[in-house]
Computed example of a mutant assay.
Amino acid sequence: MQIKLYDIRKNKMHLTQQQVAEYLGISTRSYRDKELSRHPFTQDEMFKLSSYFGMKIEDIFLPRKYQFGTKEHKKALKNK
Rank of each mutant, 00 (worst) to 15 (best):
I57S: 14
E22Q: 15
Y31M: 05
Q43D: 13
Y31N: 02
F61P: 01
Q2E: 13
P63D: 07
K4F: 06
M55L: 07
R9I: 04
K78S: 10
L77M: 14
E45Q: 14
I60C: 06
A76T: 13
Q18P: 14
Y66Q: 04
L36F: 05
L49T: 02
M55R: 10
D59V: 14
K34H: 11
S27I: 02
F53P: 15
T42L: 00
Q17W: 12
Y66G: 01
E72N: 11
R64D: 06
E72F: 07
E22R: 14
E45F: 00
R29I: 15
S51H: 14
R29Q: 11
A76I: 06
K12R: 15
S27M: 13
K34A: 02
N79Q: 09
H14Q: 06
N11H: 12
S37Y: 02
F61D: 00
M55P: 03
K48D: 05
Y6N: 14
S30N: 13
V20G: 04
F68Q: 04
M46W: 01
Q17Y: 09
Y6P: 07
T42A: 01
E72R: 12
M13C: 07
R64E: 09
G54Q: 03
E35G: 03
E45Y: 04
K74D: 10
K74L: 11
L77W: 15
L62Q: 05
E35I: 01
G25F: 03
F68D: 05
Y31D: 07
T28N: 15
T70R: 13
Y52D: 14
K78V: 09
D33L: 09
I3T: 06
R29K: 09
F47P: 13
S50A: 12
L5E: 00
R32I: 13
I26V: 15
K48A: 04
H14N: 07
G54Y: 00
H73A: 10
Y6H: 11
L77V: 02
V20N: 03
I57F: 04
Y31T: 01
T16F: 01
S51C: 09
D7A: 13
K56N: 13
F61A: 05
K48H: 06
R38T: 14
S37M: 11
K74F: 10
K71E: 08
R38M: 12
I8V: 11
F41H: 10
D44L: 14
Y66D: 05
F53Q: 15
Y52E: 08
Y52C: 07
T28R: 15
E58S: 08
K74G: 12
N11A: 01
P63E: 07
K34D: 03
A76M: 15
K78Y: 11
